[in-house]
Amino acid sequence: MEGMKKRVLSSSVPPTMVLLFLCFSVLLMLPMVSATRFMVGGRMGWNTNFNYTTWAKGKHFYNGDWLFFVYDRNQMNVLEVNKTDYESCNSDHPLHNWTTGAGRDVVPLNVTRHYYFISGKGFCYGGMKLAIHVENLPPPPKASPIKSLAPTLSSKGHIFLMPIVFAIGAAWDSFIYLW
């Protein structure tokens, strides 16, 4: 009996099964991971003499994405303002000051609307302003309808039979290996 206990305790799941399980889990989670973190300005970061309108052009910002501002923390800041203050570079009454003091600020885009960001202290006049529109993710494409001549399990079962046979064989092989 003690030998049986030892055998059961010493047997473990083969590494290939663990790897297969992990790969399958990652594949299941991929559709859920859809948020994007945009580094504002790319390699240039949040800096003067850069056209952020051109940078944002062609990009789609969706609900759940993030903006990552990288800048000189001793000089610049990140302020969210309304459209009027954005157009006039007025930083006197920001809607939100995203500046944390580290020069690495993250802004969650969790509401579908227009966002307007500027840098105060006169840097807005040097081009440090960004306007984006955040929208909801588009719905996934619909599946095409099943054609009446398409093979089904009832009409041509052999099409589905081979993957089922391989799955049963793999499960049986794992069972025998563990036993």
Rank of each mutant, 00 (worst) to 15 (best):
C89R: 02
C124L: 10
H114L: 08
V40H: 03
L22D: 07
N63E: 14
Y71P: 05
M44R: 15
E87W: 01
G126E: 15
A35V: 04
E80L: 01
C124I: 09
N74Q: 14
Y62N: 14
S25T: 14
G41C: 08
G58I: 13
F61K: 11
N51E: 12
V81W: 00
N110E: 07
W98D: 04
N47D: 06
L27E: 11
D85K: 00
R37A: 14
T112E: 15
A102C: 03
M76A: 12
M128Q: 11
C124S: 09
F68M: 12
M29D: 04
Y86Q: 04
D105K: 02
N51P: 05
I118V: 10
V26N: 05
Y71F: 14
N49T: 12
G126F: 14
S88H: 04
R37K: 06
L95C: 01
V40I: 07
S88Q: 07
V111Y: 07
I118W: 04
S25G: 13
V26R: 02
G120Y: 04
T36W: 10
S34H: 13
F123T: 08
P108M: 12
E80G: 02
K83E: 13
N97M: 03
T54S: 15
R37C: 07
R43M: 13
T99P: 00
M76C: 03
N97R: 00
T36Y: 05
C23D: 11
T112M: 08
F117L: 07
V26E: 03
W66T: 10
N74K: 14
F69G: 05
R104M: 06
D92I: 00
E87M: 10
C124Y: 00
A35L: 02
L30Q: 06
V81T: 05
S91L: 01
W55T: 12
H114G: 04
G45P: 05
Q75W: 11
W98E: 02
R104S: 13
T53I: 06
V107G: 04
E87F: 05
G45K: 03
G120E: 01
M39D: 10
G120R: 08
K129D: 14
Y115E: 03
H93Y: 02
V33Y: 10
V33M: 12
R43A: 15
F68P: 01
F117G: 04
